[in-house]
Design a protein around this nucleic acid. Sequence first.
DNA 1: TATGAATGAGTATTCATTCAT
DNA 2: GATGAATGAATACTCATTCAT
Lengths: 188, 188, 188, 188
Amino acid sequence: VIRAAARAFDEHGFHNTSLDDLAAALHVTKPTLYYYVGSKEELLFECFRAGVDRIQATFDEADRMQTPARERLVVVARGYAEAVASEFGWCMVRVEHQDLSPALSGPIQALKVEIDRRLRQLLADGARDGSLAVRDPRMAAFALAGALNWIAHWYREDYPGEGRLTPAEVADAFVAEFLQGLLPRQAP
Amino acid sequence: VIRAAARAFDEHGFHNTSLDDLAAALHVTKPTLYYYVGSKEELLFECFRAGVDRIQATFDEADRMQTPARERLVVVARGYAEAVASEFGWCMVRVEHQDLSPALSGPIQALKVEIDRRLRQLLADGARDGSLAVRDPRMAAFALAGALNWIAHWYREDYPGEGRLTPAEVADAFVAEFLQGLLPRQAP
Amino acid sequence: VIRAAARAFDEHGFHNTSLDDLAAALHVTKPTLYYYVGSKEELLFECFRAGVDRIQATFDEADRMQTPARERLVVVARGYAEAVASEFGWCMVRVEHQDLSPALSGPIQALKVEIDRRLRQLLADGARDGSLAVRDPRMAAFALAGALNWIAHWYREDYPGEGRLTPAEVADAFVAEFLQGLLPRQAP
Amino acid sequence: VIRAAARAFDEHGFHNTSLDDLAAALHVTKPTLYYYVGSKEELLFECFRAGVDRIQATFDEADRMQTPARERLVVVARGYAEAVASEFGWCMVRVEHQDLSPALSGPIQALKVEIDRRLRQLLADGARDGSLAVRDPRMAAFALAGALNWIAHWYREDYPGEGRLTPAEVADAFVAEFLQGLLPRQAP
DNA sequence: TATGAATGAGTATTCATTCAT
DNA sequence: GATGAATGAATACTCATTCAT
């Protein structure tokens, strides 16, 4: 139901998707849409939330694990990548606060901050339990979030190069890169 | 002249910036705008190009250096971060190909691919000259580009936490994180 | 049942009252409304008629009296004022024939003419029986009807000034003003 | 320019006049309308003000006269009747505050109160200078205003009866009726 | 009796773009 | 170089009305 909107926004962009288009894609008429949803921006909001809920769920799952932060990071990254590569990815990553009234822009901002907080918390946990060597948790979180969010931009299109990876594989590759760093290790 | 457009797009978003607004911000009238620029999407294109030119220049500069790829990477990352944190950052990172006619969407896509290619090349160089230990250059490039591009999303607003960093400092922090990885090193 | 519509029209205006609003106010759903009433304009028509019936009843009552026209005028004015100050006042006074299809607009126009005719008749009676000194019965009827109708505009709101009068008192004041005129009487 | 709107509102009612109709009547297109006027309700507001200005001007004129209030009342009534019978009459008399945003509804209410105040003032002046015998200035003002306002309802249509009067003649008839009252004078 | 779901026909408003001056 | 005026096309949103259940 709301998934169709996410797909349309993903395909044409929020502003280039008229509710007429959307209604047509759902084989109903515009007023029918309004019967189920209050406004276009509410639709966008719901798409956003659907995606974020998935990420939150991943964090929740990780929180329930009794493993070092490093392993929890892998779980989170995979869930994050899957959410961002899903049909809701565009909405999560591209919403612009200017497209939303303050009433909805506020909650969205809050959710974004929450995600950022939990990611930073996870890195800090890693620093504490010794499983991660994070220099600046704030910057590390930004870098990691950026890398993951960006998946929404390139994943759907046939990204250049051969071999298509699943979102989880992409996440694994990213995490591997982040964990081991690009610096060559000297042989002992 | 074109910088005003970038600032307006950055502040209100492309679709929420009418040419009336833009003209008003420049203290001229709409037809005057059309005297200087062909269309709204051309404006967007120019903003995009202005930002990308800066990144290309950084790559050019790095190419002229005779240093290992690792050091060139630092130079590139700094220039990249500065470009993305500049007023053109939004345009570079947020342009949606659906907002542009094929005539302009093509070149933009080409420029994006070019940037990606050069970044990947740089990482491959590092693998060859032994200064970088890159597993999957394609994924590493995506991760790095994502982290850097994302700066455009959070840098302008007062990002949470104390201490405001310059874009170059952010780039350094990112590169440090990427180079050394998050995995704790055993003491020798 | 139909009274709720009158109140809603009075409060929000005919065009600003959607049947959704009305249904909500009655704690039912829109189709339920349609079970009881054929259309929105029929609703308006019924409200109009409810008010006019009351005025007609007053005229009937006056007609049954065997008193001079002057006293019957007082009775009519009171009933008229009460009708116009009632919840149906707005509908009676504000209906616009453009809001109604010809099928309903005709009867309404006929009722209006009928009221006008009876009022004029009453004034003419007064001229005949010597209890009223009416110059131009047509204009006098218009003036009187206008003064009384206008009550619907100002009565509901707390009209300026102290002391709230009942509709009948307002009618008495109006009639007194009309009967005695504004011209000072010379002392005998 | 704005007069066309008044005529259209008068003929079809505010809600039944679409801006398309209006634009068509002016032989322009809808956006051209918006070039000159901010919104539909602003249009209504201007119509209202145009009419009220005329009434205010009449009051101003009367204020400059050095005659007893009774004579000034005749002047005011004529001007009032002409304003109300003009193309702006409908707008003045029928505007509903629910059709206007608070921003415009406030000023309109203020103007209405102002008119009421001046009329009451005039009657009070008459009581003071002995040229008028007003019992309750408030009620008398309401009655007079109602009678005059109501002209807007019946004047345009071919009102029943023969002999078409000018608005000034109607005003004279009304004032005569009001001044002399309906009560027969006993012969001395 | 009552309703959930659906819709056709509007309606105000916006905006990129043009053109005569 | 610059602008006032104009417009075609689109778009979000509303509402009276219907109908199967």
